[in-house]
């Protein structure tokens, strides 16, 4: 399997982090970064990661199903909208935001748009409780999201815009 030079460099860095006989530690970081590049955790990726960390494909497969951010099959959309509805967000309208997103995108939980551009997921606590309700698009956080802001984000995405091109709503940055 071939990856981009950037990802290969990252893999090399991951593998260098751990002791010589403990390369299996790189399994999860490799899977999640590779998923970002190729879109999902494919059987080929499982076999490739297994080979590189010295595991069996089954050992990697066991890991894949355990972690909720790893997606098999076709994976999630290019822009994966994650709405938190856990307790702190729930209290501040997170569930309603999720409903709003679902209706607007015509997508249910873990569904992907036909063109593969957008997907939706109702997620568990993402660690933004004091700035609820919170939304993540891929790895970017949006805090204190209002229905209006969400509408703008979703409209933008549906029009094929990247989130960073949607001027009205800014991600939290650091």
């Amino acid at each position: 399997m071939t990856f981009s030079p950037e990802l290969e460099a990252r893999f090399a860095k991951f593998l260098a982090k751990y002791p010589e006989d403990r390369k299996r530690s790189a399994t999860i970081p490799m899977l999640i970064y590779a998923q970002d590049e190729i879109g999902s955790v494919t059987p080929e990726l499982v076999a490739e990661v297994a080979k590189r960390v010295g595991s069996t494909p089954l050992q990697v497969e066991e890991v894949v199903g355990f972690y909720s951010m790893l997606h098999k099959g076709k994976g999630m959309g290019k822009y994966h909208v994650q709405v938190c509805t856990n307790i702190s967000c729930l209290l501040r309208g997170g569930a309603e935001l999720y409903e709003q997103a679902s209706q607007k995108l015509h997508l249910g939980h873990k569904q992907v748009s036909a063109d593969g551009f957008v997907s939706l997921e109702e997620v568990e606590c993402m660690g933004a409780c004091s700035w609820a309700p919170a939304v993540q698009i891929n790895y970017d956080f949006y805090h204190d999201v209002t229905p209006e802001q969400l509408d703008k984000l979703l409209s933008g995405l549906m029009a094929g815009k990247k989130p960073e091109e949607i001027a009205e709503v800014k991600k939290v940055s650091c």
């Binding site: 982090k17 530690s25 999860i28 970081p29 899977l31 999640i32 970064y33 355990f66 972690y67 909720s68 951010m69 790893l70 568990e124 606590c125």
Partner: peptide, 8 residues
């Protein structure tokens, strides 16, 4: 650093 992948 070491990245997790979603598991409470």
């Amino acid at each position: 650093t070491h990245s997790g992948a979603g598991a409470y």
